[in-house]
C-alpha cells in the first residue's frame, strides 16, 4: 500500500472511531437516563461500528459492508419489536410471547447468521490471504 493510500485509510479509521466515540457517548447518556429503546439502538450502532473497525482492510469494508448493514438493521428491528410487540400469553409465537419471540428467534440467531458466518466465508477474500501471511512470515524472517 502506498503512503498516500495508507494516510487516506488512517483518516477513514480516525473518522470511524470518532463516530464510535459519539455512539458510546449517546449510549451512555441514554442508558443513565433510562431511555431504553435509544440505549438499545445506540448499543447496536456501537457493536456494528466495532465490527466494521475490525473488518476494515486498507480503508475498505469490502464484502463485509452489506452484511454489517443487514446486522444493524436486524438489531434495530429486534429491539424495537421487543419493546413494542405484544406480551400476551394467549398469542404465542413458537412457544413464546411475540415480544420474547423477537428476542429468541431474531436477536439471538441473526448475529450468528449475518456476522459470524460471513467471517468464515469472506476470510480468504478480505481477512487474511496466503499472500498476507507470507508477507508477515517474510517480515519475521528478516527480523531473525
Amino acid at each position: 500500500m502506498t503512503t498516500r493510500t495508507q494516510q487516506t485509510a488512517d483518516r477513514g479509521t480516525d473518522q470511524l472511531v470518532g463516530l464510535l466515540g459519539v455512539a458510546f457517548l449517546m449510549t451512555g447518556i441514554t442508558m443513565l437516563a433510562g431511555m431504553t429503546m435509544l440505549f438499545a439502538w445506540g448499543m447496536s450502532l456501537v457493536l456494528t461500528l466495532c465490527l466494521a473497525l475490525g473488518a476494515r482492510r486498507q480503508g475498505r469494508l469490502g464484502p463485509f459492508k452489506p452484511w454489517l448493514i443487514a446486522a444493524l438493521v436486524v438489531w434495530l428491528l429486534a429491539f424495537a419489536l421487543m419493546h413494542a410487540a405484544s406480551n400476551d400469553a394467549t398469542r404465542l409465537m413458537f412457544g413464546f410471547t411475540e415480544a420474547t419471540a423477537a428476542a429468541v428467534y431474531l436477536l439471538w440467531p441473526a448475529p450468528f447468521l449475518l456476522v459470524t458466518l460471513p467471517y468464515a466465508f469472506l476470510f480468504d477474500r478480505h481477512v487474511l490471504s496466503d499472500a498476507d501471511w507470507e508477507a508477515i512470515e517474510q517480515f519475521r524472517d528478516q527480523k531473525q
Binding site: 465490527l51 473497525l53 473488518a55
Partner: peptide, 11 residues
C-alpha cells in the same frame, strides 16, 4: 452469537 465474532473480527 456475536461476541465470538467480535473477538475474531477485532483480535
Amino acid at each position: 452469537a456475536v461476541s465470538f465474532a467480535l473477538a475474531w473480527y477485532m483480535l
